[in-house]
Amino acid sequence: MGGRRWLTVGVEGLGILKIWIIEALSAVPSPELALRLYLQCAEAANDCGLEHVAYEFFAQTFVLYEEEIANSKAHLTAIHLIIGALQRMTVFGVENRDILTHKATGYSARLLKKPDQCRAVYTCSHLFWVDDEDGIKDGERVLLCLKRALRIANAAQQRANVARGSSGPVTLFVEILNKYLYFFEKGNQQITAAAIQHLKELINTEMQGDSAIPNSYSDAFLASTLRYIQFQKQKGGIMGEKFESVEL
């Protein structure tokens, strides 16, 4: 596995922490495995409060993603691993976190297939809203991610129309609707009942269009989502009041 070097980092109260440095991990023969190891090291550094070490591992992860991983399926798996790991990080200051989240959202939007782009981009919305007491809650950037995902879903529908002469299933739109509902329920002020209503009407328009082809999965998914909205409306209390303005 090549020569090993050790990086010794002094941290008050922790003593001396020894970790594998970048050269050792770069010798791992499988890029996909190396990427997972970089992310595990970043999370270990996060647990020890070592921001600069965690950042360096993420930086090397992105280098590996750019230069060593070529397969589109591997890219898809890798970007979701990166997003998931980044979501769990608590050690980063504003500047470092902004740099890394910007890279993650950028690579998500450049995946090969439009549906993959859409799903990765709306998953990035969780990088800007961490549901704990001290978590990040940037409602505006959440909304930007969801709007970007919606534009990609629209582009995927248009491509389906050109390629097949019919619109594709509305599954992506319903998935995005569920993200809107999640953040609406969590108290993101940027996600309004009007926005949810608009998206629901867009889905209905797509499903009722002349070029629409029935899809049992999409129909069932939408029906389940609408039942959830109805359940929340009937729940009473604060949540019931919140969902009361969402029309079915």
Score class of each variant (00 low, 15 high):
T123P: 03
A78K: 09
T123C: 12
L86S: 06
T77Y: 08
I99L: 09
C118H: 00
M89V: 15
A74P: 00
H80Q: 12
E66S: 08
L81Q: 14
A70L: 13
Y65R: 05
W129P: 05
C118M: 14
I79T: 03
L86E: 05
E68R: 15
N71F: 06
V91T: 14
S108R: 03
E95R: 09
M89C: 15
V94N: 09
L127D: 05
A104N: 04
G84N: 13
C124Q: 07
V130P: 00
N71W: 02
A78H: 13
D131I: 04
C118W: 05
D134S: 15
L100K: 00
R110I: 05
E68L: 13
L86W: 02
I82T: 11
S72Y: 10
I79Y: 00
N96Q: 15
E66Y: 01
F128A: 05
K114T: 05
I82Q: 01
V91W: 03
D134M: 09
I79K: 04
L127F: 07
A104R: 00
T105V: 14
F128R: 03
E68T: 03
E66L: 12
T101C: 12
H80S: 09
D134P: 01
T101P: 02
G84A: 09
I82G: 01
F128N: 04
E133N: 13
E66R: 13
A85R: 14
I99E: 06
V94D: 12
S72K: 11
L100S: 03
A120I: 02
E68D: 12
D98K: 09
M89N: 00
G135S: 13
F128M: 05
N96H: 14
C118A: 15
G135Q: 11
K113F: 10
D134V: 08
C118T: 14
K73G: 11
F128Y: 15
H102Q: 07
E66T: 10
Q87S: 12
R110N: 10
L86C: 07
